[in-house]
Amino acid sequence: MMITDELVTYLEALGRIRLPEESRAKAQRDLQEILQYIDTLSELDTEGIEPLSHALPLTNVMREDEVQPSIPPEEVLANAPVRKDNYFLVPRSFE
């Protein structure tokens, strides 16, 4: 897969970030190298091997359905840059 300039733009959009003009070329090169590195895995024959979804040989780690105390709203909102009463206030996100 080729990391094109358009793809970098697309990734910026997905990540809601804008790269400084001078780092675009470097980002493009880095991403290409990462992909190339990962591509070395394709050299292995994985025919008939189940994809591994987790490194630990464990299943069914679960807890009982018992209510635990929540934290006070003051703590929930402690890092909110803007709040209104006990709500977080964010830029308008309705159409």
């Binding site: 209510v67 635990q68 929540s70 709203p73 929930v76 006990n86």
Partner: peptide
Amino acid sequence: GCTTAFGGEPNTHCCPICIGMPGVLPSLNK
């Protein structure tokens, strides 16, 4: 372990896990 009760004062049924604080881990309800 936060309650699922409907309504409630805003942001009172919350904990570091469900408000996505860095470093917390989910624990699945059986």
